[in-house]
Design a protein around this nucleic acid. Sequence first.
DNA 1: TGTAATTACGGGATACGTAAAGATG
DNA 2: CATCTTTACGTATCCCGTAATTACA
Lengths: 299, 299
Amino acid sequence: MDRLRVMETFVRVVETGSFSAAARDLRMGQPAVSKMIAALEERIGTRLLIRSTRRLTPSEAGQAFYEHALRAIAEANEADAAAHGAGAGIEGRLRVCAPVTFARLNLVPKLDAFLSAHPRLSLDLIMDDRMIDLIAESIDVGLRLGDLTDSALIARKLASAERLVVASATYLERKGTPKTPGDLLAHDAVVYEQRSGGQEWVFKRGTSETSVALRGRLFINAAEGVREAVVAGLGFAVVSRWMFGPELASGKVVSLLPEWNLPLMDLWAIYPSGKFATTKARAFVNWFEKIMASPADAL
Amino acid sequence: MDRLRVMETFVRVVETGSFSAAARDLRMGQPAVSKMIAALEERIGTRLLIRSTRRLTPSEAGQAFYEHALRAIAEANEADAAAHGAGAGIEGRLRVCAPVTFARLNLVPKLDAFLSAHPRLSLDLIMDDRMIDLIAESIDVGLRLGDLTDSALIARKLASAERLVVASATYLERKGTPKTPGDLLAHDAVVYEQRSGGQEWVFKRGTSETSVALRGRLFINAAEGVREAVVAGLGFAVVSRWMFGPELASGKVVSLLPEWNLPLMDLWAIYPSGKFATTKARAFVNWFEKIMASPADAL
DNA sequence: TGTAATTACGGGATACGTAAAGATG
DNA sequence: CATCTTTACGTATCCCGTAATTACA
C-alpha cells in the first residue's frame, strides 16, 4: 500500500467531493479510488468519509487526516525538489505567472522585498487570467485561484480567500438591496467567467443552504473588468474580498448578504508536472507563502 | 513506487550508515534496499549517497532529502494517528516510560504544566533504563535515548544531545587530565552499558577522527549509577551534558577533551508498533517536543 | 581475501481496469 | 431512473528474496 499515493487520492476526493471526479483527475479507474479509500479506512480503523450517493463529506477523523495529509504530501514534494535543486543557487531568470488583478493587488506591491533579497535573480511576471500551459511557456511557478482543474500538477495551497457578493453603493441606491440569495435573481449580475457555462453558487447560513444560478447580461473573462464593472455600478458580482479592499473600506462598494457564506477560494502555487521545482521557484513560493500567512498581508 | 516507503528506507540507510544494517532493521533483503535507493536516485536525477565500501555518506542533495523526508514521514504518521484518535479526548490514564536519570532531570520537573493543562488525565511514569516491551506493558509512549535498535516502532526524533567525556575535579587532581582521546586508555572508565559488549567511541576534531575502545573495570547498566560514580571520582565517563548540568557549572565535574566531538545522542519518542498513537500520547509528545525545543529547557 | 553493494532471475502478491450489481435521491 | 459507489474477476505489473557477480579496503 502506497501511503502517499493513498493520501493524494484521499485529498483529491475530499476536494472534489466525489470518487468519480477524483478518479478522472488522477487518471485512474473509479473502482481503484473506491478500494483505496476502503483500504485506508480499514487500516485506520475508522470511517473517514461520510458517503451518501449525492454528497460526500469528511468525518471528523477524515478532516484531521486531510489536513495532515496535505502537509505530508507537501513535505514529500519538498524532499524531492530540495534534493533535486540542492546546490543550484537562486539566480538567473525566474518565470512566474499569476492572474492579472491578483498580481496587481497582492503580488506586485510586495515584490521589492523578494528582488532585494535575491540580487542575482531577475523575474519574469506573466500576468494573465487564462490557464497558461506552464511547460509550453517554460514557466517555473504559477499562482492560481480557485479549484485546480489540471491535477497533473504539483500543487501547494498557500491561502484561502473569502468570497463575497458585492455591488457599488450607487447601484444599490438605484436598484435596492437584496436581502436573500434568491433576491439576486432580480438583479443584474456581472459574471466572471473563463469558459462559458452557467455559474451556480451555494450560499450557506448556519446549516441551511441555498443554491442560486447567476443570471446576467454581462460576462467578463478578466477579474480586472469585473472590478471596474462593479465600481461603475453595472451590477453585483461574486468576488474575493481582496479585490475591493479600499472600496469596501470607503463604502463605495458594499458587501451584500453578509450572513451568508460562500465557499472559500483557494490560492495555489503550481509547478510544471513532470519536472522538479527549481530552487528559485521554491524560494519564491516559500516567500509568498509567508506573505500570505502574515496577518497584515493576508487575503 | 511507494515514495513514503522509499523515504523510510533512505532515512534508515543514512542513520545506520549501511545498506545491510538498514535492510536488517527494516526486515527486508539488502538487494531491495539497494534497488530502492538506486531507483530513488534515478527519479531525482542526482546521487544522494556517496558510497565507498566501508563508509556511506549522504551528499548535499541527500542531506536535504533526508531532512525533508524525516518531516514527511512524521507528518504522514501524524495523519494516521490523528484520524485514528479523532474524537477521543485527553483523559484517562497515560502510560509513559523513560530512562531513569533522563526522566528525573528533564521530565519530572516539568510535568506540572502538562498535568495542569489536562486535568482529566492521570499519568503513569515508568522510569527504567531497560528497553521495555511497550506492548507487553501496555505503554502508550516511550522516550528513548540513543540509536533505536527496534525499528518496528513508529519513532519521532525530539532532540539531539551533546555527548562529553567528564570526570570529577578530585579524580583529575589525583590522576591528571587526559589531553587526547588516546590518553583515556591510561585512565579508569566508568562504562554505561545495557548489554555487555565493548564500547568504542569515535572522536572528531575538525576532519580528523580517532577511535577509542573504552576499557574500564566498572560497568553500570543505569545512568544514575554512572552519574554517582563520576561524582564520587571513580573515573571518567562518556555521558550527555544534561546529566551534569549543575556539576559542570560549579566545576565539581569537568568536561574533558573539549575540542573533540562525539556523535550526538538522539532523543526519540516511540509508539508501540502496530497500534496507532492515542490522542493523549500524541499530546504528551507534542508538549515535550516543545519543551525540548525551547532554549531554556533544551538538552 | 573478506565484506558489502550490485546485477540476474524466478515466484508471488498487489493493484489496476472492465463489467456487473447495489444503493440512493 | 439516472447516477454514483461497491463488488467480482482476470490480468499485468511491480517488488521482493535467493543466488551469483563485482567492487573495494
